[in-house]
Design a protein around this nucleic acid. Structure first.
Lengths: 219, 219
DNA sequence: AGAGGAAAGTGAACGCCACTCACTTGGCTG
DNA sequence: CAGCCAAGTGAGTGGCGTTCACTTTCCTCT
């Protein structure tokens, strides 16, 4: 059952052991919680149930996490790693600087939301402990960085260019909103008829094509 | 049906004895829950606390609502009414068919998210009882209808035109995503420097201007 | 190698909460 | 006025989050 890398205790670089006592409970708990969140929704999760699934007592999780929010943050952290990897993979599948690369980053985002709606909602619905989690903030910016990189390449500008930041944020807003709307009402609305790829390509074109021609710069 | 949101008689110091028995507990509970959701986040709400604030026993709410999800649905329903009203008000403040009217609808949306982030998150994060709430679905489409109307007027087409639906959905995705991103990380990112109005105008222009020459109609 | 110590896990306990049930209360109608 | 029924009560049940005192297991130090 080899699964999650136990690179948990990264800081202070001591005791990089995998299984101290019994199996590495931390990773198992995160996996259990991810599953629970996915099947029963972000609310339908309980520390007790997660512990039960991992085969330990209901007090055991507190040896690895301060409280339930920290467990959720663990799930979110792991999910964001996967999300960023998927986005980078999407970009890499197309010529650098192409519109397709930009759209592919967005598609990876939407696909993630579609396949793991519960976790996706969790990632962006987290409100508790936001202040105590600079790593999540960093990972979020890292994800945004993938978009920025693709946009910069497409526009032929540097990543730091404010125009790049602006366009990237626009695109991110689109993709983010589309993802949420998609998983919220999966059964109806025009989004059902929409092909993601066409949609993303259209939007990317609309946003990235109107460069310089005064569409975005002046009022 | 029954939609008596009896919001009246709530001015002076509440006086628990005044509305002891036959007060409009339902509306008071919804107000209390809205407040709790706003201050303590969507999770930090409890039926018991809401009942406490309304000055009734913890069992009283169950005379008006089946379970806690139904209370939340009540809050959401009320919030969606206000959201739609704000959107319509925004559109009405500008010439019909103007780009400004479209942007104003979006601005109302973003403003709502900014002023009531907790409730906003609740509205679009609701997963339980989705099947048992056709009225919420209807209200959601009603909100979307406001966008469609403004877009149709701007493009000079009918509301039923698929191109209108498509553009409206694009705009909605953007506004929705921007709203979420705004309230999620209020302290950092480029969004902080962004003026909502300029941003919305830019996007509306980018989306509604590219009508000609197959930018979006290539499907 | 064996003592010490800390990490990892246990079970019981506390308080809060969602929800139910048998019951009172009080305004309304026939 | 009888009585009915909506509206509210209080106690009770079961679950959950969290803590605490404890045991067990394994690593390290001399």
């Amino acid at each position: 059952m080899s699964d999650e890398t136990t690179a948990a205790h990264a800081s202070m670089g001591v005791t990089p052991k995998a299984a101290y006592h019994h199996g590495d409970l931390r990773a198992q708990l995160i996996a259990a919680v991810r599953d629970l969140v996915e099947t029963h929704g972000p609310d339908g999760f309980s520390v007790a149930e997660a512990a039960r699934r991992a085969g330990v007592s209901s007090a055991a999780p507190y040896k690895h996490f301060k409280d339930r929010h920290e467990i959720l943050r663990g799930v979110v952290s792991e999910a964001m790693d996967r999300l960023r990897a998927a986005m980078e993979e999407g970009a890499a599948a197309h010529p650098n600087g192409s519109l397709e690369a930009v759209a592919a980053v967005g598609l990876a985002y939407v696909d993630f939301a579609r396949t793991e709606p519960g976790v996706f909602r969790l990632v962006f619905g987290l409100t508790e402990g936001h202040e105590k989690a600079p790593d999540l903030l960093a990972k979020g910016e890292s994800c945004f960085g993938v978009v920025v990189l693709a946009v910069a390449a497409c526009l032929g500008l540097t990543s730091g260019d404010p125009e790049v930041q602006r366009r990237a944020y626009m695109l991110w807003s689109f993709v983010h909103g589309h993802s949420f709307l998609t998983i919220d009402m999966k059964h109806k609305v025009a989004s059902a008829e929409i092909d993601d790829w066409d949609f993303l390509m259209s939007v990317s074109r609309a946003i990235l094509a109107s460069t310089r021609e005064g569409a975005g710069a002046l009022s």
